[in-house]
């Protein structure tokens, strides 16, 4: 009786203590990770909010002229803008409709290929491919105006 009485509580105490320490550690790590993600968010763009409130779904360009003026204007003056290749063609739609997933930075290898597959294949055959299209081809900045006839370095240095 006495032997079991002595041995009984001891391991219980230890397991309890270890559990407590573990719990505090897990909590500390959790708080730290939470703080890091709050203070230094991975994606600072609030486009995620579009998914939450349906009233945010509308004319991307009208709103983004204010939210991201440079990007909006660059697109407007770019070849994509002039051809009216609208935002959703590459960035998808917040409601998830259409074939392109909704993304701030779309996967270039799939979205570009949707339209440019023939020319990509041609380029691949002639020169080989750099891993990411946008390394050489600016997507919002490929302008018809401004320095339209100053060819970007990109086009000259592709071997």
């Amino acid at each position: 009786m006495t032997a079991t009485g002595d041995n009984g509580p001891k391991p219980k105490k230890w397991t309890k203590r270890i559990l407590w320490i573990l719990a505090v550690l897990v909590l500390a790590v959790g708080v730290a990770v939470l703080y890091i993600n709050l203070a230094f968010p991975k994606v600072r763009c609030q486009a995620v909010d579009h998914l939450k409130s349906p009233d945010q779904l509308g004319d991307c360009f009208q709103c983004h002229l204010k939210a991201t003026p440079k990007v909006a204007q660059d697109w407007y003056e770019s070849k994509h803008g002039v051809m009216l290749v609208k935002c959703f063609v590459c960035h998808g739609q917040p409601d998830g409709k259409g074939s392109v997933p909704y993304a701030v930075s779309p996967d270039v290898n799939t979205t570009c290929r949707k339209c440019h597959d023939p020319s990509i294949k041609k380029m691949e055959y002639k020169y080989g491919l750099k891993p990411v299209c946008t390394d050489c081809h600016p997507f919002h900045n490929n302008s018809l105006h401004h320095k339209a006839y100053v060819k970007p370095v990109a086009k000259k240095t592709v071997q």
Partner: peptide
């Protein structure tokens, strides 16, 4: 354009994050 962008950054006109 740059001015517009900075206004958006300062939350004066637009709100870029």
């Amino acid at each position: 354009i740059g001015e517009l962008c900075h206004q958006a950054y300062l939350q004066e006109n637009g709100n870029t994050k």
